[in-house]
Simulated assay, not measured.
Amino acid sequence: MESSAYNPVIQYLCSHGQTGKAEILFRQLLKKGVEDPLAFNNLICGHAKEGTPDSAFEILRIMGRKGIPRDANAYRLLIESYLRKGEPADAKTALDSMIEDGHLPDSSVFRFVEALLMRGHEEEALGRIDLLLSSQCNVNFDNLLSILSEKGKTIAALKLLDFGLQRDCDIDFKSYDKVLDALLAAGKTLNAYSILCKIMEKAGVTSWKSYEDLIKSLNQEGNTKQADILSRMIKGDDKSHENKKGKKKASVAA
Rank of each mutant, 00 (worst) to 15 (best):
S107N: 12
S135N: 14
G102D: 08
G120V: 08
N41C: 12
D101V: 03
T52S: 13
Q28Y: 06
R76N: 08
E114H: 05
P69S: 12
Q11I: 11
S81R: 12
A74F: 08
S55E: 15
L83A: 01
V139M: 02
D54L: 10
N42S: 15
D96L: 14
F26E: 02
E114V: 02
G102H: 05
C45R: 11
L145P: 05
K85D: 12
C14V: 07
N143W: 00
A56W: 11
G46T: 03
E23V: 15
V109I: 14
F112I: 00
D54W: 07
S15W: 00
L30C: 05
T19L: 01
I62W: 15
E87I: 04
G64E: 10
L38V: 15
D130E: 15
I24M: 13
S107C: 07
G51D: 13
I24A: 14
D71P: 07
R84A: 12
A22N: 03
T52Y: 09
D106F: 08
N140K: 03
Q136D: 13
S135H: 03
E100N: 15
Y12K: 13
G51T: 15
N73C: 07
V139A: 05
M98F: 01
G67E: 12
H47V: 03
A39E: 01
P105T: 10
Q11T: 11
V113H: 02
R27A: 10
K92Y: 05
T19V: 13
I44A: 08
A48L: 06
A48T: 07
I147Y: 01
F112P: 00
D130I: 10
M98E: 02
G33R: 12
C45F: 04
G17W: 02
F112T: 02
G20M: 06
F110E: 04
Q28P: 00
H103W: 10
A22V: 09
S146K: 12
M98T: 04
L30S: 01
I44G: 10
N143V: 04
L29C: 05
G64V: 11
H16W: 00
M63D: 02
N140H: 06
H121W: 00
L126A: 09
G20P: 00
V113E: 00
D71Q: 11
I62E: 14
E100W: 10
I59R: 01
G127E: 03
L25G: 11
L148G: 00
I147M: 03
A89T: 14
L132A: 11
A72W: 01
L144G: 01
Y82S: 10
C45E: 09
C45Q: 11
F40C: 13
M118E: 07
D71Y: 02
K31A: 05
E123R: 15
N140I: 03
A5F: 14
D71I: 07
R65Y: 02
D90G: 01
Y12M: 11
H121G: 00
G120A: 04
E114S: 13
A125T: 05
S55N: 12
R128I: 15
D101N: 08
E87K: 11
P105V: 13
K66H: 09
P69Q: 08
A89L: 12
D54Q: 11
A5I: 14
